[in-house]
Design a protein around this nucleic acid. Structure first.
Lengths: 107, 107
DNA sequence: ATTTAACATCGTAATATTGCAATAATACAA
DNA sequence: TTGTATTATTGCAATATTACGATGTTAAAT
């Protein structure tokens, strides 16, 4: 196989896994950190900062974007990628809600 | 390729990604939730609860275990898998530390 | 109109992940 | 010791992910 069986889990569990997946690659962790550290967030800047080719960065940005974590504003000829802070906050709250419920010991 | 280039990131970024990877599959999210909900956490119980074959559960448990999130105590003929709450707490704090720093808006 | 710069998409190779059947290992029970 | 129940490991097929070169696309500049 290789494909996850998503239909056997609750929506909440699939949602947590989907959120975690965004952060499960160091390039995406680094990209998000970099975007939040800059006033203007041009993709080419990221290529200079992170040692990956431009298509690879673009691909990771797509994953981050499809999770709803970006707000892209066109500014002149480059794109200003911004963090969608509300969505990011929502992700953090969902993760914490899951983790708080789960960290009660069993033995 | 297909392999992540780990050497181009800081240790902290790789650590966050490694933590997130544990939670990036719904089976592992479900297993952790289930383990924390039970007093005795036998693997066979998990197989009954989650619609995956025993080797698949065992494989996911291995990933969770290698991340340090389990304490396994032998109790009779079955294994009592317990959540390593300290480690789980540590993961939560590292994720929150990263996310709190990152969620400041840029635009 | 042509060029240039920034970013996206396509195609593809390399590698990782997921899932399970078959089998092995382990520990207790009879 | 022989069975039985529980968990781990192996091997393999299917799919996903990662990475990048080549090529498009878009918008401003010349």
């Amino acid at each position: 196989m290789g494909a996850s069986k998503l239909d056997i889990y609750t929506d909440e569990i699939n949602q947590i896994a989907a959120i975690a997946k965004v952060f499960s690659h160091p390039a995406r962790v680094a990209i998000l950190q970099y975007i939040s550290s800059r006033d203007s967030c041009i993709c080419n800047d990221i290529v200079d900062e992170i040692q990956l080719a431009q298509p690879t960065i673009s691909q990771h940005l797509k994953v981050i974007n499809e999770a709803g974590l970006l707000k892209g504003n066109y500014e002149g000829k480059s794109i200003c990628y911004c963090l969608n802070v509300d969505r990011f906050q929502e992700f953090q709250e969902l993760l914490n809600s899951y983790m708080n419920r789960t960290k009660s010991n069993c033995c």
